[in-house]
Computed example of a mutant assay.
Amino acid sequence: MLAVMDPRPDLDASPSPEAPPRASRPVEARPLPRTDLLCSPLTLGTSGLGAGTVPGSPEEARAVELAAAMLHGPYALIDTSNAYAGGRSEAVLGLALREAGIGDGRAIVTKVDADPETGAFDRDRVLRSFEESRARLGVDTIGLLHLHDPYGISVEQGMAEDGPVAGLQELKEQGAVGAIGIAAGKLDLMHRYVGTGAFDVVLNHNRYTLADRSATALFQEAGERGMGVLNAAPFGGALLAKGSASGATYAYRQPPAELVDWVRRVEELCARHGITLPAAALQFSLRSPLVHSTVVGISSAERIAQLEQMRGTAVPGAFWEELDGLGLPATGTR
C-alpha cells in the first residue's frame, strides 16, 4: 500500500508507445502471503525505467507514460529498487504517481541497496536507502521492502545487531514498512537468509526457468515457512525470450554452448506443439504451485499487452512431458 506525500524534487524516463487501456482491477488478484498486498500472476519489473534520462526531458516524459501504464495496468505489483537506473526508476514512478495516481489494488514494492559509493550495507544505510526511496516515490509507507543483493557482506554481518536486517525490522516495527523480503540470485546466500526466519517474502532470479530448476528447494522451503515467493527473470534475462540464434545472454552472461543447443531443441519442441519459446518460458513459472507471482521486466507499454497474450497461451500437457525428456543443461548459475 502507498500513502502519497507532497511532491518531492526528483524525476525520470524509459521508452513507451501508446499506453494500453486502464484496467479497473488487477487480474487474478490474490493475497501475497505474509503481507497486506495483493499480487497477480505477473509482476512488472522496472530495472531499466528512466535509465539515461534527464529531468524535464521528452525521454523522461515517455518514461512517465510507461510508468503510468504500469500503475493502471492489469497487474497488482510493480517492482523497483533504490539502485535501479541510479535511482531514476523510483523517481519516474514517483512522477507517475503524482501525475496519474495508482489503480485500485496496485502497489509499488522496492528494495534497499548498498551505498553506491562506499559499498556500506548496515542498519544506517538501510534507513538512508529507505528514506531515499520514500522521497523519490513520494510516499509515507511501503508495503514490501526487500534486502537487495547483499553480496558485499557476510550473512553474519547481515544479521548482526547493527546490520541491514536490523534496519529492516526496525522499519517494520515502526509501521513504515508492511513486510520485508530478501531479493537476490545466489542460492547459498538465499537459503541462509530464508533460514533465519526473519523475512516475509523471497525473490530469486534466473534460477527457476525452463532451463534451470535450481531454486526449487529454496522456493519449497519458503513455502513451508508460509512466505510469499516471487520468481524473477523467467526468460533468463534474454535467451529464453529471443531464442538460440539470437546471441542473447543468460543470467547476465554468455551462455554455454550446451545451453544454447538445449534451447534450440526446445524451440523445435515448441514448433511441434504450435507455441512459442517465450510463451513456454513464461508458462513454466506461471503454472508452478511454488510461485505466487512472476516478475518480468518491461521497457514499453506494448510489452504489457504481449505478456497478457502469453499469459493466456494454452500449453499442451504433452509439451511438458516431452520437455522433461530433454533433461536439463548446464546454465552456469548457482
Score class of each variant (00 low, 15 high):
G103Y: 01
D6W: 11
R287H: 07
Y75V: 00
L32Y: 05
W320E: 03
L168W: 02
S129F: 02
P256L: 02
R136H: 06
V201N: 07
V263E: 08
H191K: 06
R62P: 09
F219V: 12
D188P: 12
G243Q: 02
V260I: 05
A301H: 01
L282A: 02
M1W: 12
P74H: 11
D79P: 12
P116V: 14
V291K: 01
A301G: 15
A232I: 14
P329T: 06
L286C: 08
E224S: 14
D36P: 10
G73K: 00
V64Q: 06
R253S: 08
R62A: 11
P15N: 11
E59D: 13
G50Y: 01
P21S: 07
L32K: 11
V315I: 13
L66T: 13
G50T: 05
R264M: 03
P329G: 03
R287K: 12
R225S: 03
V54G: 09
R30T: 11
P316Q: 06
P41A: 05
P41G: 08
V295F: 02
Y250K: 10
V194L: 03
F219K: 08
M70E: 14
A85F: 06
E268K: 15
F319M: 09
R128C: 00
V92D: 10
R22A: 10
R225L: 11
A19Y: 03
A120F: 14
P316S: 07
A120E: 15
V112E: 09
V126K: 07
A305C: 14
D79E: 13
A114W: 07
T331W: 07
S89L: 04
L71W: 08
R272Y: 02
P20A: 01
H148Q: 04
R88V: 08
S154K: 00
G223I: 07
G226N: 04
T209C: 14
L326W: 01
G185A: 13
V315G: 06
V109I: 15
Y151Q: 08
A279G: 10
C39Q: 01
V266P: 01
A248Q: 01
M159D: 07
P316G: 07
E59V: 04
M70S: 11
G48I: 11
A68G: 10
V165D: 00
